[in-house]
């Protein structure tokens, strides 16, 4: 067994174990942290495949940005998980049977042997071209795959428009500040000068 294979099995075991943990642990913060571990060991697996760009992007984007936001949300919202996992134990046997049958069907159809015989690619496109993975990916993305790349950008734009359309609205009955009205306030609106007869004058009479 080469070191690479040993590392693969180690990282794969961590990935599967952590992913199982995400859906079984009780504490939501622990679940989110286990998801971070899942992503991280996935990134290690990709590194073993010499896809260093994807591995680093996974860590930067998912672990660095998405999961941190996720943790914020989980910590801020007091989610009661007990009600969410009410049916978990009840449906588990049925789900396990269905999943088991599907796995058996897939194996029967494709064949166990075919799965073992899948040849590992000796060299990928990047090695053939004699450039690094990142450079090769960048070239492919901006030449052959420029149209899908642009369409993906449009999808992200739609996501922004949709997110704003769905969340930006005036709810009746919510107290909020309106800075432009606060700035425009005049002295007369807030300050009232009241003439009050003084004690001294009365005493003088």
């Amino acid at each position: 067994m080469t070191t690479e294979l040993a590392l693969f099995y180690a990282f794969a075991a961590v990935t599967v174990g952590a992913a199982l943990g995400v859906i079984t642990v009780k504490n939501t913060v622990h679940a989110a942290l286990l998801l971070v571990l899942t992503f991280f060991s996935c990134a290690c697996l990709w590194l073993l495949l010499r896809a260093e760009f994807l591995a680093i992007v996974l860590v930067l984007v998912y672990v660095g940005a998405v999961m941190v936001l996720f943790l914020f949300v989980v910590m801020m919202l007091d989610i009661k998980t007990d009600s969410l996992r009410e049916g978990f134990a009840r449906y588990l046997p049925v789900a396990a049977v269905v999943a088991g049958i599907m796995l058996a069907q897939m194996l029967a159809l494709i064949g166990w042997n075919a799965m073992l015989q899948v040849p590992a690619p000796e060299s990928d496109g990047a090695t053939l071209a004699g450039v690094g993975n990142t450079e090769w990916l960048g070239r492919a993305l901006f030449t052959d795959y420029i149209l899908p790349f642009e369409v993906a950008a449009v999808i992200l734009t739609v996501a922004i428009v949709a997110a704003i359309a769905l969340t930006l609205r005036r709810r009746p009955g919510v107290r909020h500040q309106d800075p432009s009205r606060q700035v425009l306030v005049r002295k007369e609106d807030r300050l009232r000068v009241v003439k009050v007869a003084t004690e001294g004058k009365e005493a003088g009479k």
């Binding site: 795959y145 149209l147 899908p148 369409v151 993906a152 449009v154 999808i155 739609v158 996501a159 428009v161 949709a162 359309a165 769905l166």
Partner: peptide, 18 residues
């Protein structure tokens, strides 16, 4: 291309959900 089919579908689906 399979990618274009999927991306077109995703664009339609995302707009529809919203």
């Amino acid at each position: 291309n399979l990618i274009m089919i999927y991306l077109g579908l995703a664009l339609l689906a995302l707009s529809s959900y919203a």
